[in-house]
């Protein structure tokens, strides 16, 4: 057995999984508060990756010469998060809020509609081909390599992992220690009661969407860097995988999404390493089905009976 290869795959899987966790957080936060699956979340992620690439292009064009890569990447990240947040906010206001009191199927179908719309909007507005992440910005990070014994890791993997973990820690701290976080937890427990004690539920929900979308955009940009490209339908597969991660960890549970994301990343990379890249999504689906049958509440989720 090739232990170095095995370990490298595991590290790559953890880095990829951390990005899935960032997307999964958006699913889980929205589910925690609204009890609905935001199908359009994958598209928000995809728009984030496009926004990052477009911002980098604008920055390059405006600055004339090649800008300092780290500064440009930082600008791209912030811009992508802002654009995606705007999309997520609009999405909630126009497509979900009018359906807040409707039957459970209604927002779900609406979300699928939004997802189809956004995907094809980006395809028509930009391109149906793959869009490469500008290599001038990602290549230096790939070339940065560290070696521990036999195992070699790329700088980009370390950076991606570090940023994802940092963002997750920030989110965790916010939910746990700030007033806003307390309001979010209150809304996810009982919206009526939260409204009665003076929490602006609508605003909290909007903020939840904005935060989730911004995290997805960060994941979008880093995934585009990591894979070297993005496409209008990138959000679909990533969305399904991230949702699986959220379910695996226990949907509605924020630490669960982080754990689930990393596990799913590992499953994907290890199955791709051992059986070939064609099988990784089949493996992910098998995980989803197994979790749903054996332990529907996920690894960290608490058991909730169906409310009648």
């Amino acid at each position: 057995m090739n232990w170095a290869g095995e370990l490298e795959t595991i590290f790559g899987g953890v880095a990829r999984g951390a990005l899935y966790a960032l997307i999964a957080l958006g699913y889980t936060m929205v589910y925690g508060i609204l009890r609905m699956i935001n199908f359009a979340h994958g598209e928000i992620y995809m728009i984030g990756s496009f926004a990052a690439i477009i911002t980098l292009a604008i920055v390059t064009t405006v600055s004339g010469a090649l800008p300092a890569p780290y500064l440009a990447l930082a600008i791209g990240l912030v811009a992508a998060m802002m654009v995606s947040a705007a999309f997520g906010f609009t999405n909630e206001r126009l497509a979900y809020r009018p359906l807040r009191r409707a039957h459970a199927l209604a927002p779900l179908i609406s979300a699928i509609g939004v997802s189809t719309f956004l995907q094809n909007f980006v395809m028509n507005a930009q391109t149906k081909d793959k869009v490469d992440f500008p290599r001038a910005f990602s290549e230096p990070l790939w070339e940065l390599r560290w070696r521990v014994g036999e195992v070699e890791v790329a700088g980009l993997q370390v950076i991606v992992l570090g940023m994802a973990v940092g963002l997750m820690a920030a989110l965790h701290g916010m939910v746990k220690y700030t007033r806003l976080g307390k309001a979010m937890r209150a809304c996810s427990q009982d919206q009526t009661m939260a409204a009665l004690v003076g929490i602006p539920v609508d605003r909290v929900i909007s903020i939840t969407f904005v935060i989730g979308s911004a995290l997805a955009a960060a994941a979008g940009m880093m995934f585009a860097m990591y894979n070297g490209q993005t496409r209008f339908d990138a959000g679909y597969t990533a969305g399904v995988v991230a949702f699986t991660a959220a379910v695996l960890g226990g949907i509605g549970n924020i630490p669960g999404a982080m754990l689930g994301g990393i596990l799913i990343g590992l499953v994907e990379d290890l199955s791709a390493y051992h059986f070939g890249a064609d099988w990784k999504y089949v493996a992910v689906f098998v995980v989803l089905l197994t979790v749903l049958i054996v332990r529907p509440r996920g690894l960290l989720g608490e058991a909730v009976a169906d409310k009648v």
């Binding site: 497509a95 179908i109 609406s110 939004v114 094809n120």
Partner: peptide, 14 residues
Amino acid sequence: RPMLVGAVMVAMMV
């Protein structure tokens, strides 16, 4: 058409 399909689904639900 796919854009139309998506918009139709949202509009119908709302």
